[in-house]
Structure formats: structure tokens, C-alpha cells
């Protein structure tokens, strides 16, 4: 049986803008995935714990506050400490292009910048989860 892909949509830090996260969550559901949405104000610790308990295939992080260079690598690091590096980590929000190489070096598989159609995100996740 082809089981649904499970994705954790997470809002780390203090950023309260959740329109994008919610739109992506719905789009992922419409594409047949099971989406766990964390809500706002998540610490990297909370995100990783949720990812592990929910046994997700992908963690999709939405951040618009400029704190991405701190928070995204932290999530990747904590996942590694829990032996969970097989979980795909992607991000989106207000993230300048010039920060993307740094984020990719730190284990984020892809960054979806403003204007990316949800179909692109969906296809990437489908193609890159480790199953």
C-alpha cells in the first residue's frame, strides 16, 4: 500500500505570519499528504520532538522574521543528534537568495522563496523524501 507522505509544517521562533504555512499545509493535504501543523512559537527542540514522534518524512519550516540562519540549522543539528537525519528538511518564507548556500551547507535540502508555486514544493518533497 502506498502510504501518504507525512510532513511537519513548523513555525519556529517568534514570527507570527502564518498565511504561507497554512496555505502550504492545505496544498500538501490536497496533494494527498498527512500534514501536522505545529502552530506558532516553536523552539527547534519542540519541532524536532514533534518530527520524531510523528515519524514524518519531511519538516517544512516557514519563517519570515529574518532569524532563519540561526533557527534552521539548529533544527537540522538536533535531528542529527536524534539519529533522524533521514528526515528531509526544507524551508520557505522571507529568505534572501544569498543565504541559501549557507542553509544548504547546513543540511536544508531546499529553500522555497516568495512566489514559488505550491506545486513546486509538493513535487520536490515527493521526489526527495527518503522512503
Amino acid at each position: 500500500m502506498d502510504r501518504p507522505i507525512r510532513v511537519l509544517v513548523a513555525k519556529p521562533g517568534l514570527d507570527g505570519h502564518d498565511r504561507g504555512a497554512k496555505v502550504v499545509a492545505r496544498a500538501l493535504r490536497d496533494a494527498g499528504m498527512e500534514v501536522i501543523y505545529t502552530g506558532l512559537r516553536q523552539t527547534p527542540d519542540q519541532i524536532v520532538n514533534a518530527a520524531i514522534q510523528e515519524d514524518v518524512d519531511c519538516v517544512a519550516i516557514s519563517i519570515l522574521s529574518g532569524a532563519h540562519n540561526t533557527l534552521l540549522p539548529k533544527v537540522v543539528k538536533l535531528l542529527a543528534e536524534q539519529d533522524a537525519s533521514d528526515i528531509l528538511v526544507v524551508g520557505g518564507g522571507v529568505i534572501p537568495d544569498e543565504d541559501i548556500p549557507f542553509l544548504k551547507e547546513n543540511g536544508i535540502a531546499e529553500i522555497f522563496t516568495p512566489g514559488t508555486p505550491t506545486s513546486v514544493t509538493i513535487e520536490f518533497i515527493k521526489a526527495n523524501v527518503n522512503r
Partner: peptide, 8 residues
């Protein structure tokens, strides 16, 4: 698909 929102 499903939105699993109770965890929030």
C-alpha cells in the same frame, strides 16, 4: 490527505 491539527 489530512491536516492533523490537534497537536497545536
Amino acid at each position: 490527505g489530512a491536516i492533523l491539527g490537534d497537536r497545536v
